[in-house]
Each structure stands twice: as C-alpha cells, then as structure tokens.
C-alpha cells in the first residue's frame, strides 16, 4: 500500500474531501429491468444513465424508488471531459437538471473522450495519459464542477488499446487529477481488470496509487475474453478476477457504495439477486480481512 506506514486506511478522510454519502449496494437502473430493480432485495441505491432520461419527465419507476428514499445517481456518458475542448454548457446544464430532478447526492461521469473535432465515437475512449491531457482534463473538471449542484465522481474507463504517448500510469494519472481538482472517484474494478488484460496494467499497482479516501463508489460488471482481448460487455456474469479485485479494494478502504452494471441479455431476477449477493460476499471478505468491519 502507498501512504505512511502508520496510516489507518479506515481513518478520517482528509478535510478538503467533499462529504461523500454512504450509498450501500446498488444496481444500474435500466428501462428494460425497471420492475426487477424495484423488486430486487438489498438495493440501497441505483444509478441511471443521464442521457437516457428527461429530467422534466422522470420515468415512473424512478419516482417510485425516490418515493422509497432510494438515492438515484445520474451517470453521464457524453460530457467528454477527457476531450480537448471545454465541456459543453448545454450538456452540463442537462446533467445538473437530472441531479436536481432526482435530488441526487452526487453525479458521475468518465475520464474519457467521446468526440474530437467533427467526429463522434458514440462511446468512451481512453485519454492519453500525458502532462498536456492532465492540464486540460483538470481544467475541464473545474468547469464541470462549477456548473453542477452536487459533487462529481469520475470513473476510469475500460481500454481496448493503449496510447503510445502515455507518460503516466493510470494510477499516477488519476492520483494527480484528484490532487489537482479534489474530484471524487468512481472506481470501476471491471475496468481495472480490462486494463490488465488489454494493456498489461497491474490493477493492484493502480490501487496502490489511488487516493482511496476520495472514493465515491465502485462499479462492478461482467465481460468476456475473446482472442486475448477483454470486452467489458456488461452482458456477461461478473468473473472471479473482478470479485477478487473488489475484495482487495474493500480490504484497503471503506467503500461508500458498490454498484452492479448490467446492460443487456438480462438473466432471471434470481440470477441478478445472486450476483448482488456475490458482490456483498466479496466486499465482506475484504472488510473482514482488513480486521475492521467498520464503514460500509
């Protein structure tokens, strides 16, 4: 682990960190599984893809969940904060409106670019980890936070390729960004696994470098390996190496929230419930190994 030898991983977070709410365990809310999500046991919070809803006309299912006091975190996918340009004020205003309509405790987005010049990737692409990118992304994060009514958490993405220009490791890059901006982290352990298979990055070395006191919540998802490449599909079961990473993370730090992402080929409700239970078990195993059992 990084940090001073006497540092207590469960100690108080540094004073400049924003107050991060305890979220518990959750699942990504999707229109196709709205009733399932409402019925699943042990769902303490959900996340909704911000671009998929109209903040002026929330889906009935989200209103039901909010009525029960279940927090809903808007999760943006198109701000392109890792892009070269300044973030689009209209997209920021929309994300802010989602946060307000849902009375959300925070919003989340990605350290990724989705557009460049006149072209759109339609998906999240990794940012070159250069000093130039650090300066630009840090400034974009500051602009975004100025437009948002709640804290922002940013997520590491699932890379299929590496930039030849990389000057920093992913751990160093995220650490530096968090240091410069105070932004919170949404750590996707499945994406750490993706980076291991596809770029050779050691996920445990990444965890060593991350400021885990800035952890807002954690993503867990399934995928599949084809021809030596890990595809972060969100349509396959969560594999053992991802649960092992989750256990190791829970051993290192208290986890304010842990959320399962599933985006298609939906299994029977019982299978989703079993997957949520397996995630809980993985977290408990790590927390017990840390000798504490404090935190969530």
């Amino acid at each position: 682990m990084s940090g001073a030898p006497n540092s207590d991983p469960h100690g108080p977070v540094s004073p400049e960190s924003p107050a991060l709410p305890a979220l518990g365990h959750g699942i990504g809310w999707r229109p196709a599984i709205d009733l399932t999500v409402e019925r699943l046991p042990g769902v303490d919070f959900v996340e909704v893809v911000a671009e998929g809803i109209d903040p002026g006309r929330l889906p009935e299912s989200l209103r039901v969940l909010r009525g029960r006091g279940v927090p809903v975190v808007p999760h943006g996918v198109s701000l392109s904060l890792g892009g070269a340009g300044r973030p689009d004020p209209a997209r920021l205003a929309r994300l802010a409106a989602c946060a307000e309509a849902l009375d959300a405790p925070l919003v989340s987005e990605h350290i990724a670019f989705t557009r460049a010049g006149d072209l759109d990737a339609g998906h999240l692409l990794p940012v070159p980890r250069t000093k130039d990118a650090l300066a630009v992304v840090a400034e974009n994060i500051r602009i975004a936070r100025d437009h948002l009514p709640v804290p922002l958490a940013l997520e590491n993405v699932a890379p299929l390729f590496a930039w030849p220009d990389d000057e920093l490791t992913e751990g160093e890059f995220l650490h530096e960004l968090a240091d410069r901006t105070g932004v919170s982290l949404l750590l996707d352990v499945a994406n750490l696994h993706t980076a291991r298979v596809n770029t050779g990055a050691d996920p445990y070395a990444t965890l060593d470098r991350l400021p885990l006191e800035r952890l807002a919540y954690v993503h867990v998802a399934g995928g599949i390996e084809r021809d030596g490449v890990w595809h972060d599909t969100h349509t396959h079961p969560v594999p053992a190496p991802v649960l092992d990473l989750l256990t190791d993370l829970a051993r290192r730090a208290p986890l304010p929230g842990v959320l399962l992402e599933r985006d298609g080929d939906y299994p029977p409700d019982a299978d989703l419930a079993a997957e949520l239970a397996a995630i809980r078990t993985a977290v408990d195993r790590g927390r017990n190994a840390s000798g504490g059992g404090r935190g969530r």
């Binding site: 892009g83 010049g117 072209l119 130039d132 630009v136």
Partner: peptide
C-alpha cells in the same frame, strides 16, 4: 495543450 490533445484525439478517432 488543448491544441495538441485535439490533434492527437482527432487523428485517432
């Protein structure tokens, strides 16, 4: 920095 990043990202995309 924005210009250099833009050029690299545009070429890749």
């Amino acid at each position: 920095a924005r210009d250099r990043l833009a050029a690299g990202q545009r070429a890749l995309l």
